[in-house]
Write a protein that binds this DNA or RNA. Structure first.
Lengths: 226, 226
DNA sequence: GGTGGGGTGCTACTTGGGTATGAGGCGGGG
DNA sequence: CCCCGCCTCATACCCAAGTAGCACCCCACC
């Protein structure tokens, strides 16, 4: 099965170079080219490539916006290509935006040609691939942001009984005492008692601080839906 | 400058294979081998390799523990090699643990030999490298956990005036109305007015929910100190 | 069998927080 | 110039939330 590739870049010479490079591979077909993001989205919609090679910086509609358009298609559009972002500089803002949008990879244009070809194959197969410098940063970020879970606050969490922890979590979901009582089938007074103990044990003043503690300790995290 | 490599793997045949492969490169020296984690740490301390090739699964002390020992050296130990983890299966728990510990890469043993050699060079240069399937997962995780910042809540944040945003942030730090008033040099009543507007605009009931909103929208994040 | 911790519940009291309404000052845009 | 949004503040009211003290049940552990 050949890999259908679409090349989106505003520089004609770059497009030509990539196209020649890729077309020389027996398992890769270049099915189209586009010179800006808007056009890229259109061509992608009509040619259904497996992989879109997308330059980040482009006129009209930049690569990020185009990637988003392709990766979160409007209702009715079923085709969803893999997107491999390309850039001359490794500007991290772009990287994160692109990855968040669902891009499958991020390469620097100064990478060896063989890398580009390999990247297209990897991405087409459903895996992902990043330039080494980008990988380094991603890992650093990843390593930096998580360990909060194992910090100080969560140690103090051990002092709480299961019931108290449960109540704390519901506070952190924004429930009132009455709602918590309803949810746990308790008298509102009981909820107050539990909360009182939680606040005392954790040395907090009110439920607002309890919410903060819940987030800081990792008991709940941004994105946890109800 | 040649790259000094230490190979740590419990299977002698694997070690031999890797050693032969790497030693054949003019820019790579294999300065040692070890058959378990504990030994690996010792040999690393005595031979000061640039890169440690570390198998994940090993007797005595597994690759993760060994990696941690090398990457967070005890006081007095200054040498800190790059660690490239190797595994037969791509078990994600290990991946995350290793990356969090500070590993520079994660490769599957079924990767082509050229990849291993390239990986050693990349890692030695200070960049990072992951197996494509690992990269895919890391990106997926990364994309899944952060999007809060660009989503719903932060859009509604735009409806807030600068002052209101400021007040919201202080609420999310756990301050009482009085404390906020003090901090911003305002009457407490003024603070209440602002809060009232914030709650109304964001459709929240009380300051506890405001704290939640602040975290979910990314206005504040776990780990933000004062 | 006693002891202690966890869970539950009550009465009673205090207060911080949220609501309602109104109003004055200030700066920018029509 | 006038209007409007933002920031400021006051008065007044209400109630959810937090505090204090006590009490009962159950169960694990000694």
């Amino acid at each position: 099965m050949t890999i259908r590739v679409l090349i989106v870049d505003d520089q004609a010479m770059v497009r030509a170079g990539f196209a020649a490079l890729l077309a020389a591979q027996s398992d890769i077909d270049v099915v189209g080219e586009a010179s800006d993001g808007r056009q890229g989205v259109e061509v992608s919609r009509s040619t259904h490539p497996d992989v879109v090679l997308m330059d980040v910086r482009m006129p009209e509609m930049d690569g990020l916006a185009a990637a988003r358009a392709l990766l979160e298609p409007p209702p009715g559009v079923v085709h969803r290509p893999k997107v491999l972002m390309l850039t001359t500089f490794d500007v991290d803002d772009y990287v994160y935006e692109a990855l968040r949008a669902g891009a499958s990879g991020f390469l620097l244009k100064d990478a060896p040609p063989a890398d580009l070809i390999a990247a297209v194959r990897v991405v087409a197969s459903g895996d992902a691939l990043l330039a080494p410098s980008v990988t380094r940063r991603l890992i650093a970020d990843f390593a930096r942001q998580k360990p909060s879970r194992a910090k100080d606050p969560s140690l103090r969490l051990n002092g709480l009984t299961p019931r108290e922890t449960e109540v704390l979590e519901l506070i952190a979901r924004g429930l009132s005492n009455q709602e918590i009582a309803g949810r746990l089938v308790l008298a509102e007074q009981t909820v107050k008692t539990h909360i009182g103990r939680v606040l005392a044990k954790l040395d907090l003043r009110d439920r607002a601080q309890a919410v903060i503690f819940a987030y800081e300790s990792g008991l709940v995290s941004p994105g946890d839906a109800g």
